[in-house]
Computed example of a mutant assay.
Amino acid sequence: MNINYQDLGAAGNVVITSTVFEFRKHNRVVDTTLSLVPEVVSERSGGFFMKTVISGKAAYALWAYIFAMREAGQ
């Protein structure tokens, strides 16, 4: 699982990528992040390689990145 933060000025993105073998962990990280930071939106894509982009204002995207890293470490 790979989690990257992209600062785009006023907005920010958190990109979470993983393979289908980490499907449950990927979904848990995304769902937990979206429930803890409701000011962001997500877009999912991919089949074997899953990619989720969580975007919003830079401060909220940074919080989403922190929560995603914390949840992925558990």
Rank of each mutant, 00 (worst) to 15 (best):
K57G: 15
R28H: 11
N27M: 11
E43Y: 04
F48H: 00
T33Q: 11
G46L: 07
A59P: 03
G56C: 01
E22I: 02
A10V: 06
A68D: 14
F67N: 10
G47H: 07
T32V: 10
S35Y: 00
L36H: 06
R24P: 05
E43N: 08
L8I: 03
V20G: 00
R70I: 15
P38D: 06
A64I: 14
T33S: 12
A68K: 07
V15M: 02
T17P: 12
A11I: 02
G12W: 01
A64H: 09
R44K: 13
W63R: 10
S55H: 11
M50T: 09
Q6D: 14
P38T: 05
N2D: 14
Y65L: 04
A64G: 15
I54F: 02
M50F: 07
E71L: 00
T19K: 07
V53T: 15
E43I: 03
V20C: 00
W63K: 08
Q6C: 08
L62I: 08
A72T: 12
L34W: 04
T19A: 10
A59G: 03
I54C: 09
L34V: 10
V53F: 04
S35F: 01
H26C: 12
I54A: 03
A61N: 05
Y5R: 04
Y60S: 12
T52A: 10
T17Q: 14
V37F: 10
F67Q: 07
V40F: 02
V29H: 06
V20H: 02
L62K: 13
V15H: 08
E39Y: 00
V29E: 11
V53H: 05
A68T: 11
L8M: 06
S18W: 01
W63V: 02
V41C: 06
A68W: 09
G47Y: 03
I16F: 01
T33E: 08
H26Y: 14
V20R: 01
N13R: 11
Y5I: 05
S45H: 05
E39N: 07
Y65V: 03
V15D: 08
F49C: 01
R28S: 15
Y60K: 08
E43V: 07
V40K: 06
T19H: 12
V14G: 09
D31I: 02
M50D: 05
V30T: 09
K25F: 12
A64P: 13
S42Y: 07
L34D: 12
T19Y: 11
F49Q: 05
T33V: 13
H26A: 09
A59N: 11
L62F: 13
V37A: 05
L62P: 00
Y60L: 08
N27C: 11
F48R: 00
N27A: 08
A72G: 07
